[in-house]
């Protein structure tokens, strides 16, 4: 009798732990948020991936705020206010992060311009038909004079 009471209490405890985010929509929101927030003390892991103590605390905090009815942007700005943009895996576009966002595009454009220049330079001699005609003329001329003297 006593044992079954203990067992029942245990079950209730488990049920409560699971019920922290009862709404599947909240669960989904939590998973999405946890993926976008960086575990500050890990090597490139989100707080969803990490087992670190701090990541666990961050998850707890996010969960708590979802339960309090806060929106995603409220939760994210709460974290950014305390830990800076570094906590975001998708940093916002501003003066500091401009090179991060634009760098790859600039590199692609520079690369494309370089290819364009190289290709143009290779095409140029063939396009210059006037010079080629003169060259052929000169060659023929020298060949003729060579025959005459020989």
């Amino acid at each position: 009798m006593k044992l079954s009471a203990v067992f029942l209490l245990l079950l209730l405890g488990i049920a409560q732990a699971v019920a922290e985010l009862s709404d599947p929509r909240d669960e989904r929101r939590f998973n999405e948020l946890a993926k976008t927030l960086r575990c500050m003390v890990c090597q490139n892991q989100s707080i969803a991936d990490s087992d670190a103590e701090l990541a666990r605390d961050f998850r707890e905090q996010v969960q708590k705020k979802i339960n309090e009815g806060q929106s995603d942007t409220e939760i994210i700005s709460y974290m950014v206010e305390r830990y800076g943009d570094y906590i975001l895996y998708r940093p916002p576009f501003n003066m500091v992060t401009a090179i991060l966002w634009l760098g790859p595009f600039i590199l692609v454009i520079v690369g494309f311009l370089m290819i364009l220049r190289i290709v143009r330079r290779q095409e140029q001699p063939q396009a210059d038909t006037e010079q080629q005609a003169r060259l052929r003329q000169l060659l023929e001329k020298s060949a003729d004079s060579g025959n005459e003297s020989g």
Binding site: M40, V41, D57, F58, Q61, R82, Y83, G84
Partner: peptide
């Protein structure tokens, strides 16, 4: 005890 205050202070290490 639960580390919530530290998160408010932006503590990570």
């Amino acid at each position: 005890y639960d580390g919530h205050l530290a998160i408010d202070w932006g503590v990570y290490g």
